[in-house]
Design a protein around this nucleic acid. Structure first.
Length: 728
DNA sequence: AGCACGCCGACT
DNA sequence: GTCGGCGTGCTC
């Protein structure tokens, strides 16, 4: 009897074999018995007949769920690659790349449920019998034709739908989806703008490559018209009746972005993001798989969207950290895009104003084709960057007097001022406010990290720990202070310093609701507030034409963090932010307050811009043998008992060091995580590094078994993170 | 991860 | 005498 190899959703690094009377195609879902439960798995291979030498009795497949494979060979290759590269259980890999509904074993059908008006509903609409405003709107949207369930559920609350169905004004019907498989004959809805010289060069660069795999890095300053380049490079792809997959950061997926693509080509654009219902996602997934969508735009997990006729992949804002999954299968969608484009043999376009050092390095090494846009469209001027030396300054609410007077003058002129809190979880260093010197670990020559809970300093490279000193070792001043503190004082203090100015705080807490951010941004642009205090979210996607001054305060935290990526993240933030303030008629200025005005990376950023900063930073990475000139992995562990976690990682470290000589591996830790305690559990991590990616891979592959069999491995919660980007 | 089996403490 | 604590081991 044929034997099928099934990837079952359990955290085990193997697949399981089942009997079935006929062979089952790879990529088909099956229902199988597993222990005393039944699970949905994916067939990943077939063994013709049962090999009698294995001593186990195989169970049989309960049900074959799909007539045809749901996944094409490319996605199967991708799944296998993921399991291997991230050392992750194959069954869990399949779970993450399947839409939730398919994971649950739900059937895939061409028909879908939709809402339509009943006769009573029709009357109610015509005679305006329904009093609820939302209910009225809902009825109106169904006036012409049935609308699919997913869409209605997204636009109206369950209460509205429930009320209308109870009054029998609406009902569900099954409709067959219209199938559009040919969009090559699309008509441009709007005229294609004439590309600038730089844009034209970039567009030609991509288009002349043909349809084969190649990675392009489009490095274009904010406002240089990257989207226009995307639009013009995908036009011929669509003309050839091929599909385009576009990945965007979580925050970047706005109706405006989607609308821009829809307006240009007049074709339906599939959208995928985390806030959609499972059903809506599945529908887009399926439409793409059947080749009914020319363009699919989505966030991180959209990289798993199947395409019958793939033509190109684009990753916008490729440096964005939201492309890295931070739990479970910790994949990086940008890296995966490279792998997928290669397997599909289609071009890949990575775009950013502030490319990741990884991508930039690949471009400089000619592995990627480097395309650059350095002019802002329409001749808009750049925001001027300035450094404000805060050494020895008496700070008020964390701000130096000189800067306060600059703020005052901008406010007096009726302009908006943005105070930016760089509140990201940087490992805080300790600096002398008199001379700017950091407190360093003697053996590593790197700043110590301040751990608030213990009130001690810890070196994140060798693990050395010492108590907080009283004096600066360089100038003996007693004004040592930890970086990144004082944001709370700032929020209060600004109110006291500028009592007559209307201020608003924008961070992820303050704009929790669905439309809260949009509302707040509209208010800002309507000049309802004059002083804006904000965090990360302000650096992404929004424009502030009335802001003429941007103040960045806790810069030193980023420059001296134990996280070697902190300066890069900071520079990206600054650059993105600078691109969002002011406009042609009202050029902006930006002040960065620091105790280290002479810091080489900061100087490079201020005077020569991100591109130069990045090249300088790359050079430093090379000198320090840090990524992308080496490869890293992190093992994180957490448990209720700190001792247990520590012991476990100590044993893991031992296991790795037993093998390290073969691979030239370096181990740091166990170190307490920056957020040492989360949900009552203590968290520690172990850093693994090799100069070669392959060596790191083999090192982990040959040690992981041993780690998994440690008795403590089942007592603590632990995870492996390949190519970590966040060390918190 | 689930889920069962298994062996020690306080309850109807 | 049993209900239930969570340690240990297995899942084709």
């Amino acid at each position: 009897m044929p034997v099928v190899d099934v990837a079952v959703p359990v955290p085990l690094k193997q697949s399981f074999s089942y009997l079935h009377d006929t062979p089952v195609a790879t990529g088909v879902r099956v229902k199988v018995p597993f222990g005393n439960r039944t699970l949905i798995g994916v067939v990943i291979g077939n063994i013709e007949t049962q090999t009698e030498d294995t001593g186990l009795t195989l169970k049989s497949v309960i049900e074959v769920l799909d007539e045809v494979p749901l996944f094409d060979p490319t996605l199967i290759t991708l799944a296998n690659w993921l399991a291997k590269y991230y050392h992750h259980p194959i069954g869990e890999v399949w779970s993450t790349l399947m839409p939730v509904r398919l994971r649950k074993g739900m059937p895939l059908t061409d028909k879908l449920d939709a809402f339509t008006l009943t006769e009573a509903g029709q009357d109610a609409l015509e005679q305006s019998l329904v009093r609820g405003k939302k209910q009225q709107l809902c009825l109106a949207s169904l006036a012409d034709e049935p609308v699919e369930e997913g869409e209605i559920k997204q636009r109206f609350s369950p209460a509205v739908i429930k009320a209308l169905s109870e009054k029998a004004l609406i009902q569900t019907v099954r409709i067959k989806q219209e199938i559009q498989t040919d969009w090559a004959s699309y008509t441009l809805q709007e005229t294609t703008p004439v590309a600038s010289t730089e844009q034209a060069v970039a567009i030609a660069g991509v288009n002349q490559n043909g349809t084969e795999f190649r990675t392009f890095l489009l490095e274009g300053v904010t406002g240089s018209g990257k989207t226009e380049v995307y639009l013009q490079v995908i036009a011929p792809v669509l003309k050839a009746n091929r599909q385009v997959l576009i990945l965007v950061p979580e925050i970047g997926l706005t109706p405006q972005t989607v609308g821009r693509f829809e307006r240009r080509f007049g074709i339906k654009v599939g959208v995928l993001h985390s806030q959609m219902s499972d059903l809506a996602r599945l529908q887009v997934w399926q439409q793409s798989r059947r080749g009914e969508l020319g363009i699919v735009i989505g966030t991180r997990s959209a990289i798993f969207t199947p395409m019958v006729r793939p033509g190109m992949i684009i990753v916008d804002e490729e440096h964005d950290e939201s492309f890295k999954q931070q739990d479970g299968l910790r994949y990086h969608a940008r890296d995966l895009a490279v792998k997928r484009a290669q397997t599909e043999n289609v071009p890949l376009l990575l775009g950013s104003a502030t490319p990741s050092l990884e991508s930039l390095n690949n471009a400089l090494a000619k592995r990627y084709t480097h395309l650059q846009l350095s002019e802002r469209a329409g001749g808009a001027s750049h925001t001027q960057l300035k450094v404000l030396d805060s050494r020895d300054q008496p700070l008020q609410a964390g701000i130096a007097p000189g800067l306060l007077s600059v703020m005052r003058s901008h406010l007096q002129q009726g302009n908006q001022v943005l105070v930016f809190l760089n509140r990201r979880g940087y490992a805080p260093a300790v600096l002398c406010h008199h001379c700017g010197q950091t407190v360093d670990c003697k053996s590593c020559e790197r700043p110590f990290t301040y751990h608030k809970s213990q009130g001690r300093l810890q070196c994140h490279h060798c693990g050395a720990s010492k108590r907080m000193p009283n004096q600066c070792s360089a100038c003996h001043s007693t004004s040592l202070q930890t970086s990144g503190l004082g944001t709370e004082q700032l929020e209060q203090g600004l109110g006291e310093l500028f009592p007559d100015i209307k201020q608003v705080r924008i961070d992820s807490d303050a704009v929790r609701g669905k439309d809260a951010l949009v509302t707040r941004l509209d208010e800002i642009n309507a000049r309802k507030y004059q002083l804006l205090i904000g965090t990360q979210i302000l650096s992404k996607g929004h424009h502030f034409p009335h802001v003429t001054l941007v103040v960045v305060l806790d810069c030193d935290g980023a420059l001296f963090s134990a996280d070697f990526r902190a300066p890069e993240k900071f520079a990206q933030l600054i650059t993105q932010l600078a691109g969002r303030a002011g406009r042609a008629t009202k050029p902006g200025e930006m002040y960065i307050q620091t105790d280290n005005p002479g810091h080489p990376l900061l100087q490079e950023l201020i005077h020569n811009g991100f591109a130069h900063f990045a090249r300088h930073a790359l050079h430093e990475r090379k000198m320090a043998n840090l990524p992308p000139y080496s490869a890293q992995a992190v093992i994180r562990a957490e448990a209720n008992a700190a001792q247990q976690v520590h012991t476990f990682l100590q044993q893991v470290k031992q296991a790795f060091s037993d093998h390290s000589h073969q691979f030239g591996g370096y181990i740091a830790g166990p170190l307490p995580c920056l957020i040492e305690k989360r949900q009552g559990r203590f968290r520690f991590m172990l850093l693994l590094q090799c100069s070669q990616r392959a060596a790191l891979h083999n090192w982990i592959a040959s040690t992981l078994r041993q780690v998994q069999s440690l008795p403590l491995a089942t007592r603590v919660r632990w995870s492996l993170d390949i190519d970590p980007v966040d060390f918190s």
